[in-house]
């Protein structure tokens, strides 16, 4: 086995999801057969960070045109690296950046990415979610050539052995021409005003599409008030403009970890779960007993929120008197 793991940097360090992806790669090959790849215009620091782990080796894919990130730059550079290294598998963390280029990179090798993997069993058989988390699918790589896999955030606990001796570090300089880079990305900016700090809220009532209409929001607002909780929402509620985006919980919104997270009419898609899985106590109210939110909930009420929520508001008020 020759496995490449493509690590990403975040805030000057290799990201947690990258370490998780590297840990997932251990299901495919022992540490000595895994090569950690860092990529960018300056890779000395992340390379040193990776070399502290017992990888077979670390490769620095370095070129001035690799910053800022572009799909064109990354695909060109990593495709050349793949041709040189001839890996059996290439493993990525499933980030927005990877979503943006890995499908094209895999296609360049005549392959399809097995994306957002949550489990790797012998075979190897890769499990990923289907139907917004309501079902799982097991996938196998069928063709010849490298198998491309991206790993869902939080699916594996990062646990990598430290290097006993110095891990060899190589530098790979791809041939990239400025004309190959067709997109011009701007600087990242924050979307909305930050007037609520959901991150430090102790109690959160979060509402999803089950509420049906903006006119019904007072129902959950009353429950939140009774609990002394902040009101939060899943993405479609904010997409519709029913609540401001700063109240959105999930991968493209806020990450929260309150003592109590009460999810009302939320199905529990992974992009929502990553933002609230760390809550101390999770309660779900949903009419669908198979909704994925129940996979992470401590307590659940299966029923119509339009009946359950008012009853709960009354029960909370009574208990607080």
């Amino acid at each position: 086995m020759r496995v490449l793991v493509i690590l990403e940097e975040r805030g000057g360090h290799i990201s947690r999801t990258s370490w998780e992806a590297a840990t997932a790669a251990l299901r495919l090959a022992p540490m000595q057969e895994i090569t950690a790849v860092v990529i960018g215009a300056q890779t000395e620091l992340p390379a040193a960070e990776a070399a502290a782990k017992a990888f077979g080796k670390v490769i620095r894919v370095e070129h001035p045109l690799l910053a800022p990130y572009t799909s064109d730059g990354y695909c060109a550079a990593l495709h050349q690296l793949i041709q040189q290294e001839g890996p059996t598998q290439v493993v990525f963390p499933h980030t927005y950046q990877v979503r943006d280029y890995a499908p094209a990179l895999a296609c360049r090798s005549g392959q399809a990415l097995i994306g957002d993997v949550i489990e790797i069993a012998d075979g190897p058989v890769f499990t990923r979610q289907l139907m917004q988390g309501r079902l799982n699918g097991s996938y196998r790589h069928a063709g010849n050539g490298p198998c491309f896999v991206s790993v869902q955030a939080g699916a594996f606990r990062a646990e990598l052995p430290d290097a006993a001796a110095a891990t060899p570090i190589e530098t790979f300089t791809p041939a990239i021409d400025a004309a190959q880079i067709r997109t011009r990305p701007g600087e990242p900016f924050r979307g909305s005003a930050q007037t609520v700090d959901l991150g430090s809220a102790q109690w959160i009532v979060s509402v999803g599409r089950g509420i049906r209409e903006a006119e019904n929001l007072p129902l959950v607002q009353e429950l939140a008030t009774a609990l002394g909780a902040e009101l939060a929402a899943s993405r479609p509620i904010c997409d519709n403009g029913w609540l401001p985006m700063e109240r959105q919980v999930g991968s493209s919104g806020q990450s929260v970890a309150p003592r109590l997270y009460l999810a009302v009419g939320i199905s529990g898609a992974i992009q929502h779960l990553v933002g609230m899985k760390g809550s101390q106590c999770i309660v779900a109210i949903n009419k669908d007993p198979d909704a994925p939110i129940f996979e992470v909930a401590d307590y659940g009420i299966v029923g119509d929120l339009f009946e359950v929520v008012p009853a709960l508001t009354e029960a909370v008020k009574a208990a607080k008197q």
């Binding site: 399809a112 979610q129 790589h141 996979e295 992470v296």
Partner: peptide, 16 residues
Amino acid sequence: AVALEAITLPKKQKST
């Protein structure tokens, strides 16, 4: 290049 072999119900992470 990639084949879907089986569909299964997800395992629960917590007992609700």
